[in-house]
Design a protein around this nucleic acid. Structure first.
Lengths: 369, 369
DNA sequence: AATAACAATGCAATCGATTGCGCTTTGCAG
DNA sequence: CTGCAAAGCGCAATCGATTGCATTGTTATT
């Protein structure tokens, strides 16, 4: 183990076959102007000697690294890890590698790590913004140097960008209307940083649904969180449930806080969904696990990752059919479970209902280790 | 956007400063034989022109890519994504990039993707084996070429390897003894593929605990799963609970199947932990979410990732203090929750107990999006 | 048979950074 | 004033693969 014998190069093959390195290179790349015999001989020897192309050298010469960079907040979050899984798969299928980097939701770290990605001369960058980030100038390093940047999920509030996203407004609208249909009349909202458009849009969709249904918009039950973490969720829910006129429904901007709401409510003996109907966002695996199962918005993480790669590839191929920028919107849908199902139509015994989109998610992301 | 002006190189800087590229290179790398003034001037101009080193060129010349390759089964599993998060962080801190690849638990895909990683001339490889994999010859490509391979979690059953792991035997032993202490006398086991040593060891630890406590080892309640998926868990649990003499406790080789056991048992009205005590493995986030909360073995995913990087760095630095191979074993511990706590000492109201190792996990991996 | 056309291969530059070796200058001791 | 070392910097090769252009050998055309 650990021998440091040098790897085989095309020069080694060339020497042995008494041809030039150019010929070897072309033979391996199936260039038209190389004879059949030669190609066969080269490939045979390459295999025998265990030749493997040096991607680094190739990248330097061709100026194409065939590598995508990913910048996300935290790798170990259900939505993000599925997103990455989708990116990895689509990238691999198109012959690209994937370098990964996390910002820990801190803008400064995002900036630092972007430098590293740039130094790696990635072919394209796929980003989901750090929660903190409000200034986007650090992405110009890429755009100004001709490296496509595709934003996924959390994207900047500026116009000239490529992005893959969902319609957060309408998803939130549907979620809220669902609660209203279930009889809720005083619906609270758990929202994230408003400078992140996805959270602002979810908030707007929620408010629009209330207004459309002639329900009061009470800002005292619109909760503002920073990171939408479990701890925040627990702490803020306690406050919310302590007020004189507590809500009878709540729409949370993510599942993590929704779970905290359920746990807090349960500990107080508040019946879900009868006294408090809850719906989250993302359709994380925990939705099916918690008792009662949590209604949510299905957020197509893997598909979003794949779409981002597809979009990056199109840009690299010079596809300008969508104009200077492109925006892909993926579909979401409400997944109704017991936490919001006051009419009792969706209940089951063991909680295993063959809901189509969910089994689909499971197929591509089994919760095994 | 999308201008294709070429990036600044050291030659551009050299020309403008009327010095040689060598000087620029050395100045930027803080080489001793370059004058103070020169260094200052070079760095100033580099900054002004937005110079960024081309890692690809540097890698080619120095034969060091400063890139770690990761090969895992699925990125989007709680344990794996935390593992990767740890790897990414430790790698970044040591100035290394991270390329990621997934095998989907299929050996063939593992082999194919390893080729790609090799072609990228990664500095070191960190692997958690595909469930299927029993032959390890495809890793020789790396070892024979002097590229360190560090196995994490799922490792080969051969000796001359570097690895980071836990003591699966003793963890399983402790888990099983815990069930026995709680009064269980007929304990079942849900195991994974036995050719994967981690699952074989968990099984052995379980059996050893039974024997030590003079309990019968009944193979009819040792369940063999392939992927340890939720579906498998549900299907096999149904069979298990249908037998004449059902178990009063079960130790599962992962949390996913343990959750299935709980859900299946609940749907049949079996009381947990009174009639069936359950303990899983990994301490995934779902453990705290499910009702009743699931006891488990804390599996230090992030720390394992960091340890693997540390180990790889040591090998690259030529550290032979551990001999030709090195093995790092990290600690685990039983996390007792309601699913196995028949004595009722660990209960709480809202399920938020400030268990130290858990809050630690949360700090580094908040369940937010 | 002479020439055009083409197929197959080689030559050498190139991508951007690094580095061993050698050259020039300055400083200082003898 | 000479000699010599150290400081500061440049030359040119190098890493491995790619590619425009030149070259050789072969076949087809008139």
């Amino acid at each position: 183990m650990g021998n440091k014998k040098k790897a085989v190069t095309i020069h080694d093959l060339a020497q042995e076959l008494k041809v030039s390195p150019s010929t070897v290179s072309r033979a391996l790349n199936d260039h038209a102007s190389i004879g059949k015999q030669t190609k066969k001989a080269v490939r045979k020897l390459a295999k025998e000697r265990g030749y493997r192309p040096n991607t680094i050298a190739s990248s330097l010469r061709t100026n194409r690294s065939n590598t995508f960079g990913i910048m996300v907040s935290w790798i170990n979050r259900p939505f993000i890890s599925s997103l990455i899984s989708g990116i990895e798969e689509a990238a691999r299928e198109s012959g690209n590698r994937v370098i990964i980097s996390q910002s820990h939701d801190i803008t400064e770290l995002e900036m630092e790590n972007l430098q590293v990605l740039y130094d790696s001369r990635i072919s394209a960058l796929i980003v989901s913004l750090a929660m903190e980030t409000t200034d986007y100038s650090h992405f110009e390093l890429f755009t100004k140097n001709g490296i496509p940047v595709v934003f996924v999920d959390r994207f900047p509030t500026i116009h000239n960008i490529h992005k893959v996203h969902i319609n957060n407004f309408s998803a939130a609208f549907e979620a809220t209307e669902h609660l209203i249909q279930q009889g809720c009349r005083r619906i609270a909202h758990f929202g994230g940083e408003r400078h992140q458009s996805i959270y602002e849009d979810r908030r707007s969709g929620y408010i629009a649904a209330l207004k459309k249904n002639n329900l009061e918009v009470d800002k005292s039950i619109i909760i503002q969180a920073n990171l939408l973490s479990a701890e925040e969720g627990m702490r803020l829910t306690k406050q919310l449930l302590d007020i004189d006129n507590p809500p009878d429904g709540i729409f949370c901007a993510n599942d993590t806080t929704a779970v905290s709401v359920i746990r807090c409510a349960k500990s107080r003996g508040i019946k879900i969904p009868e006294e408090l109907a809850v719906i989250g966002f993302n359709n994380d695996p925990i939705c099916e696990i918690i008792d009662p199962p949590l209604s949510s918005i299905h957020h197509p993480a893997i598909e979003m990752g794949m779409a981002a790669v597809k979009q990056a590839l199109a840009i690299l191929a010079g596809d300008t059919s969508t104009g200077p920028v492109s925006s892909v919107t993926l579909d979401t849908h409400v997944v109704i479970r017991a936490s919001s199902d006051r009419l009792g139509t969706e209940r089951s015994e063991d909680g295993f209902r063959g809901v189509l989109p969910e089994s689909k998610v499971k197929d591509s992301a089994p919760q095994t280790k």
